[in-house]
């Protein structure tokens, strides 16, 4: 079973919920931090990193000696990543989506591929958690290819928990596409509600069952609860605002470590999800 923890709005508590749930349950877990732009889960799980891998994506390299400036590469590229200027061919590798079209159409075989570094994937372990995260290279624009790479690292026998990036566009889709359950984390504020509605639309588009965690549940209004009821989205956990929780988080400690009475609640959260997925 794969559970993605997502939210439209950033900073609602995705990492808090995903790390605490992973720690609370008593079985082996693959934990994937797919927020590759700003990965934070390692700060709370402190895995021992055993392996680190550079990940790249293919981009074209042109052999000018073979090129006859036919411009077919430029014509097929929808991303303006390759252009022919006089006798030269310019490749803007940061715009390239690695579709391979230019290499395919080049009648002279003048195009081969080299790698553009996307970032690093690190693999580690802590207790019952097998940990993987991606760290996007600073300056790299595209996160979905790296997210897809991180997602390949799972033992399918075990439960997988994914910490997804915020938003509703392509990086989020890459982190929730094909999972069994999306656990959405929101706060009961106007921003929280507005962005939750977008996240719900995305989840519906993909047809994935979902549930809700309401964080800082006493700071705001009842509107999020009303919306959840209207949409038939079960509220699986509420976490009230508590300075102690906020301070615990600020130091990189998890709730279940600092306040063990929460372990049962995060366990129950997981069992509730399991029941929904199995039914």
């Amino acid at each position: 079973m794969i559970i993605s923890v997502a939210s439209g709005k950033g900073g609602t508590g995705k990492t808090t919920v995903s790390t605490n749930m992973a720690l609370a349950i008593d079985r082996d877990v693959n934990f994937l931090d797919c927020d590759v732009e700003e990965p934070n889960a390692h700060l709370f799980l402190n895995p021992e990193i055993e392996k680190s891998e550079l990940v790249d994506t293919p981009v074209p390299k042109v052999n000018l000696e073979l090129c006859n400036q036919c411009r077919k590469c430029m014509d097929i590229c929808r991303f303006n990543a390759i252009t022919v200027v006089g006798e030269k061919v310019l490749v803007f590798s940061e715009l390239c989506h690695s579709c391979g079209g230019c290499m395919l159409v080049c009648p002279e075989g003048a195009i081969t591929e080299i790698g553009r570094e996307l970032g690093t994937i690190e693999y580690g372990k802590t207790d019952h958690i097998t940990f993987t995260h991606g760290k996007m290279r600073i300056g790299e624009a595209m996160s979905p290819p790296l997210i897809k790479e991180v997602r390949k690292s799972v033992n399918p026998e075990d439960l997988t928990i994914i910490d997804a990036p915020p938003g509703t566009s392509c990086p989020v889709i890459a982190a929730i596409n094909g999972v069994d359950f999306v656990l959405m984390v929101t706060e009961p504020t106007p921003f929280g509600l507005h962005d939750l509605k977008l996240a719900v639309e995305a989840v519906k588009l993909l047809g994935i069952p979902s549930g809700l965690v309401i964080n800082r549940s006493d700071l705001g209004t009842r509107d999020v609860y009303d919306y959840a009821q209207e949409q038939n989205i079960p509220v699986l956990l509420e976490i009230p605002f508590d300075r102690k929780i906020a301070e615990t988080y600020s130091r990189g400690k998890t709730i279940v470590e600092a306040m063990p009475e929460w372990t049962d609640k995060f366990q129950k959260l997981f069992y509730d999800i399991e029941q929904i997925v199995e039914s």
Binding site: G10, G11, E37, E38, M136, I138, G139, E140, A141, M142, S143, P165, P166, G167, S169, P171
Partner: peptide, 10 residues
């Protein structure tokens, strides 16, 4: 601005 460091931020 948006969160993150990827394409919309750049």
């Amino acid at each position: 601005g948006p969160p993150g460091i990827g394409c919309p931020v750049i």
